[in-house]
Amino acid sequence: MNAAATSMPPSLAVAGLRISAGGKVLVPGLSLTIGRGEIVGMVGASGSGKTISAFSLARLLPDTLTQSGEISLEGERIDRLSESEMRKVRGGRIGMVFQDPLSSFNPLRTVGSILVESICRHQRLPARQARELAIDTLATMRLPGRKASVDAYPHMLSGGQRQRAMIGLALVNRPALIIADEPTTALDPTIQLQILALLRHQASSAACLFITHDIGAASAICDRLAVMNEGEIVEEGPTDRLLASPTHPFTRELLSHAPGGARFR
């Protein structure tokens, strides 16, 4: 790491994040740092606490869950922001990609108008410029036909195309952090690979937290992996190191069940 990089605050710094439901502690104390341009994979089985941890970063937990601990975005504490201030952060400085775009996109709105609304809210651009930006963004996401995809309703796109549009929406306001929660899980394997390639390239301007149960998908694009079990990071390290010599039994378990994790022959 060079001097300029060390003097810059990390894109995301989480310290002592604690999440509980009533008296039950779900995440006892999570700490994680992601630098600019870095993709970190948070990997674990269902129920390991990875999704609630990710949602808590954008302060999106349901009222039944309480969170405490420090969350800093580019050096600024966002855990203390009011709800109305958080609304400016979500979709702006934090972009989000979910598993199923069909259920997170409004079915009555065109993909273009969903992007335009987000651009107008966060960048205060006039409508015409916002539309230009939406068109450019969808083209950068390699959606076919400039006009066609802007004016398409979500159901008119294929699963892979919808996920491209969703990544476009997450990136359109140039966020500091992208949280991608199982973005490839609902897709065919070959389309998964396309979306992973897109995410890796396009997210390079931000920091990205990639949540998945699929250690194979995470390994394809992540610089570092954090393996979660029962609300705690049990092992964390550079992807190559972690895959080649996993130390925690749970990491080995995840690898042994992944399609490419055990010897094929």
Binding site: T190, L193, L198, T239
Partner: peptide
């Protein structure tokens, strides 16, 4: 071939720059 690569070694598939670009472009 792509299906096998995606299932067995997606990291190797995306480490090939030409292949990664074609995939990104769909």
């Amino acid at each position: 071939r792509l299906l096998l690569a995606a299932a067995l070694n997606p990291r190797a598939a995306l480490s090939d720059p030409r292949l990664a670009e074609a995939l990104e472009n769909g």
